[in-house]
Design a protein around this nucleic acid. Structure first.
Length: 207
DNA sequence: AGGAAGATCCGCT
DNA sequence: GCGGATCTTCCTG
């Protein structure tokens, strides 16, 4: 049904970043490719709220060629490259001038599993297909070409959910230990008891 | 001009 | 659990 695979409007993104990060859990990420339609329920996401949030790339008002899209209107894709080999996908939120974004960290495949498996070199039922931000992008074929695309009118978009989400979990964000007190903020949201979540619980802290 | 670090993943122990 | 892979981006000197 094409009705369940239509882009959410800009108004979905034009809200506080923590609200969007929470509400995106259970929504469906869709990528229409020549090889077929890829779709996955988002089960894990994180909010990044520059310029005050030290964990955000837009921290301190850093406005560069890379972060530029975050300073624009909501509903666009912020795609960046890390660790020399991984791409990450963010949703720009809130309003123009507020460099806020939601990182999509994991998804549960519901369509196009064969293509995802081919890209990931795994079996179609392997949880490692998309249980992490880099894995999700590789499975979906997302890279620099998707930087700045309008998520309300592109082949890449977020669709409303055909099924309700499960219980919501919260924890500190992953991999931002360098951010001091900001690293402790519980700005990671995930669907509890879903096996596609990258880490079921918050990572233990050293004493 | 140079270098350090990174919103990670994978394979091995 | 640990370290290597791999390269873009940004800050410093």
């Amino acid at each position: 049904m094409s009705s369940v695979l239509s882009p959410l409007p800009q108004s979905f993104y034009a809200r506080p970043v923590l609200t969007v990060a929470r509400d995106v859990i259970g929504k469906v990420l869709v990528h229409v490719t020549p090889g077929g339609v890829l779709a996955a329920r988002i089960v894990e996401a994180e909010a990044y709220r520059g310029p005050e949030d030290r964990a955000a790339h837009s921290w301190g008002g850093r406005r560069t060629e890379r972060t530029e899209v975050m300073f624009g209107p909501p509903g666009f894709a912020y795609v960046f490259f890390v660790y020399g080999m991984h791409w990450h996908l963010n949703l720009v939120t809130t309003r123009e001038g507020a460099p806020h974004a939601v990182l999509l960290r994991a998804g549960e495949p519901i369509s196009g599993g064969a293509q995802m498996a081919r890209r990931r070199k795994l079996a179609a039922d392997d949880v490692r297909l998309s249980n992490g931000p880099g894995k999700l992008c590789q499975a979906f074929g997302i890279d620099r070409r998707h930087y700045g695309v309008d998520l309300t009118c592109s082949s890449l978009f977020l669709s409303d959910a055909p099924t309700p989400r499960g219980r919501l979990g919260r924890s500190p964000r992953i991999g931002v230990d360098y951010a001091g007190a900001w690293a402790e903020k519980p700005w990671r949201f995930f669907e509890r008891d879903n096996r596609w979540v990258s880490r079921p619980r918050a990572s233990p802290k050293p004493t």
